[in-house]
Amino acid sequence: MGEIKDIKYLKKYLLGKLSKKEIELIDIELIENDKLVENLSVAEDSLIEDFIEGELDQKETKLFNTNFLVSKERKLKIETIYLLKKYSNRDEKGDSLIVNEDIEFKSFFERLREIFHLSPQKLAFTSILIFIMLGIGLVYLNYFGNLSELEQNYARMNSSDLVNIQKDNYSQIDLISGISRSSNKVKTIAKDSLNNDVFFRLALESESDSKNKYRIELIKDDKIVFRVPEVNVYRNIIGKELRLILPQTIFETGLYQIKATKVKSNKISFMYSFYVK
């Protein structure tokens, strides 16, 4: 057994990585006296920093989510340390918090000129790339063209930047793909609670490529009931997520699935389930 006051050992305790007996010893020590309080507080902060800096391995990240991130207070702690780190790093560089970075502006003709200065190989590669993009564009247009008027309205809404969305204007549902937090239960939403359009936050694996777009299909009784051709990937401090707005009017009682498929690959998809009662 490790030294009970050792920060590394206490971090394992916080993650639930120790044996049951070791956890019990620390639990009882914690109830009996306050000798561990300071070191545990330091271990908490240090663990959060490890998490933010991506120092935890996959197994530890999972333990972090199930055993450590168990209250809104801890969530706020993560956010506070995250912001402190961001603030400190900017402050050191002498930057103000609001930074308008200069974007190198190149005109269309300058870019065109650059293309024609490319080697034949690069030019061939560029042509193929343009061809593929045109193909994707056509598929997209075909898909978009088949959308109903309502779907088209929401397609426009969802393709815009939803970072600064006014959450108060929506009913919010957060979903994790496949199974819920650590059980196999499907999230249940009361139909009455859906007073406005529904704003979904769909958790993605942190390794997901942020530059990808996802196509969304809302499925009920094995039928697609609503489609959104493109939603963006957003980064949050523990990973990535898709943000999606759907009209409140389409929801009836029953089991729903949201299928999110990578627009580019058309193969990799995630399934999110919820039940409206």
Binding site: L69, V70, S71, K72, K75, I78, E79, Y82, L83, K86, R90, L97, I98, V99, N100, E101, D161, V163, Q172, D174, S180, R181, S182, S183, K185, K187, R201, A203, S210, K211, N232, V233, Y234, R235, N236, I237, I238, E241, R243
Partner: peptide, 22 residues
């Protein structure tokens, strides 16, 4: 916590490649 699916996805969100703080 499991049963109620308490919302614990952090609120801090930004789009990839954007100026995070702003």
């Amino acid at each position: 916590l499991e049963r109620n699916e308490i919302e614990l996805i952090p609120d801090i969100v930004f789009q990839e490649g954007s100026n995070e703080i702003t």
